[in-house]
């Protein structure tokens, strides 16, 4: 049972913003609802107005634009994203990461925009988006704007979104090189769990290896210093150094899921494994 609120289905971006501004602090945007409705159910949130974004044109579309990469409507359910052929073939790491979110039931509702807007440090799609250097296209009181994913997360639960602003689309730039991505997530159980530590690695044919971490800092983070170590060296020693660098760059907390110390240790372990697997995958793909 939920406590009463009003539900409004916005028909346009403008209407959504207008509704949100009028509701002020009592307004909440709704996409998949798998986070919002849980928080309302648990009495952590008591909104006055819930503004459904799913009726806005383009919010649930996946479009390929020539030379522009892929544009994903923010309310697109994760399962639709995972099953999309273009996503699978060009942005496999994102599909893989999205696949680890919750259960089938959750992924049929949970959206890409929601996953990042909640700004959980453990958001599973975030490390992949960081590595693909996604652009977050938002809509707000002053119209549309573009935020680089690296500037989107501001802290646990905090984003660069302003009042009345929401994530409209996510643009994935085209990757010109062949690549192979790996997402390793350590949970408590093997399925349907939040990450204690997650690591994404994306190996590019040109020699670059991109690395991002989840659940070990106030926000999901890209660890460029660790990447730099692998720029010209890919040997065991370099992988070890990169993993150690990732650990240095992590700033986890202790919470009910794991201690800070365990998270640090696992950051190193999973980073090394992710790099190894990404390099091996790329090599296999090149053959």
């Amino acid at each position: 049972m939920l406590l009463p609120f009003d539900y409004v289905r916005a028909r346009s971006r403008e209407e959504a913003v207008d509704l949100a501004l009028r509701a002020g602090a009592g307004g909440r945007f709704l996409a998949g609802g798998t986070d919002l409705l849980v928080r309302i159910h648990d009495r952590q949130l008591r909104p006055k107005v819930v503004i459904d974004l799913k009726g806005i044109e383009g919010m649930q579309a996946i479009n390929s634009c020539d030379g522009e990469g892929l544009v994903v409507g923010a309310a697109t359910p994760l399962n639709r994203l995972i099953r999309d052929e273009l996503v699978r073939s060009r942005y496999g790491l994102l599909a893989e990461a999205a696949h680890t979110v919750g259960s089938v039931q959750i992924r049929n509702r949970a959206s890409l925009g929601g996953n990042i807007s909640n700004a959980s440090p453990a958001a599973d799609t975030a490390p992949a988006l960081l590595l693909y250097e996604a652009e977050i296209l938002t809509w707000g009181p002053s119209g549309g704007r573009k935020i680089l994913i690296g500037e989107f997360f501001k802290g646990p639960g905090a984003t660069a979104l302003g009042e009345g602003e929401f994530v409209f689309k996510v643009r994935l730039p085209i990757l010109k090189e062949r690549s192979f991505g790996v997402y390793l997530k350590l949970g408590r159980t093997r399925a349907v769990d939040l990450a204690i530590v997650s690591v994404a690695a994306l190996a590019l044919e040109g020699g670059e290896v991109r690395l991002a971490l989840g659940a070990v800092a106030p926000t999901p983070i890209r660890v460029r210093e660790a990447e730099a170590i692998l720029r010209n060296r890919k040997d065991k020693e370099a992988i070890k150094e990169a993993a150690a660098a990732a650990r240095r760059l992590a700033a986890p907390i202790s919470d009910i899921r794991a201690s800070r110390e365990y998270r640090l240790e696992m950051t190193e372990v999973l980073t090394a494994r992710a790099i190894e697997q990404a390099l091996a995958g790329l090599a296999a793909r090149a053959r």
Binding site: R188, T189, R190, A191, V192, D193, I256
Partner: peptide, 16 residues
């Protein structure tokens, strides 16, 4: 009690 939910009190799923 800090974990009165399946989010943080995990029980075995079919994957286990």
């Amino acid at each position: 009690l800090l974990n009165p939910s399946y989010v943080d009190y995990k029980i075995a799923t079919a994957a286990e």
